[in-house]
Write a protein that binds this DNA or RNA. Structure first.
Lengths: 129, 129
DNA sequence: ATTTATACTTACCGTTTGGAGAGTGACCAT
DNA sequence: ATGGTCACTCTCCAAACGGTAAGTATAAAT
């Protein structure tokens, strides 16, 4: 099998690595990515609308993730002081750029789904036999 | 005669999304990415060598993550039947391609570290004041 | 006989995650 | 007066995560 030779990674500074790992760890979780996708697709949405587009998310996780994304500067939260309350969320420029960066992983996963499933079946079969 | 729906994102099929989310969720965790980086940097390494390059990882997590990566077809595990045991790990082609896909997120995080930290400080300051 | 080395595996256990569901506040419609 | 709406917030609880430490197998070295 022709595996390409080890390519040097763009960065090796341990301090930067740590910060980057931290950022990625926070940013690359399930709900964050799903919400990122929803907002990239639909533009500006209200709280419950975002929730409707993310099947299976609980109110707690929706609030929590949206807050974290706001804190990180990925989404902009706009509160309209009316009753009943109206709060709208949309991606910032930073949020969009993250979406684009993630696009690579996303499409990688799409492109290689079959390969991964095949590898898993092979592995599990070998374990039994 | 429908208005063309705004669709900057590559995919919207819920079934594919679910699978992709699943794959990304498993693949995009802290230890997996760190090991991916290490193996991309160093080529083929033994168990303890990988561990030495991933500061803070426990034996348990090292074994577990390596196993999962093997199952997903990301790393190839080679056992040399000698005593004491000698087991070597290296990335497969699939593993390399994932590394490259993640590279985008990695560099995004590097490029935007300052912006994120600034956003956080702004957010936290606003919360206090 | 005991130690050493490697690559695990297992048991235990504290920490964290995250879901369910109830509560809140303010105003409008009935 | 009661109920409905919206965007949360809070509490309780079960499950998952992940670290520590001990155990396993084997053969060579002391």
């Amino acid at each position: 099998m022709g595996v390409p030779p080890p390519k040097p990674w763009p960065d090796s500074d341990p301090r930067v690595d740590e910060l980057v790992n931290d950022v990625i760890g926070q940013v690359a979780d399930k709900w964050t990515m799903l919400i990122l996708e929803v907002l990239a697709d639909h533009g500006e949405l209200r709280f419950t609308q975002v929730g409707r587009h993310v099947p299976g998310i609980s109110q707690k996780m929706l609030t929590q993730t949206l807050r974290q994304m706001e804190r990180d500067g990925l989404v902009q939260r706009t509160v309209h002081p009316v009753i009943p309350p109206r709060v709208e969320y949309k991606l910032t420029e930073l949020g969009y750029s993250l979406g684009e960066a993630f696009c690579g992983v996303w499409t990688w996963a799409e492109d290689n789904l079959a390969r991964i499933e095949a590898a898993r079946e092979r592995f599990d079969a070998a374990k039994v036999g």
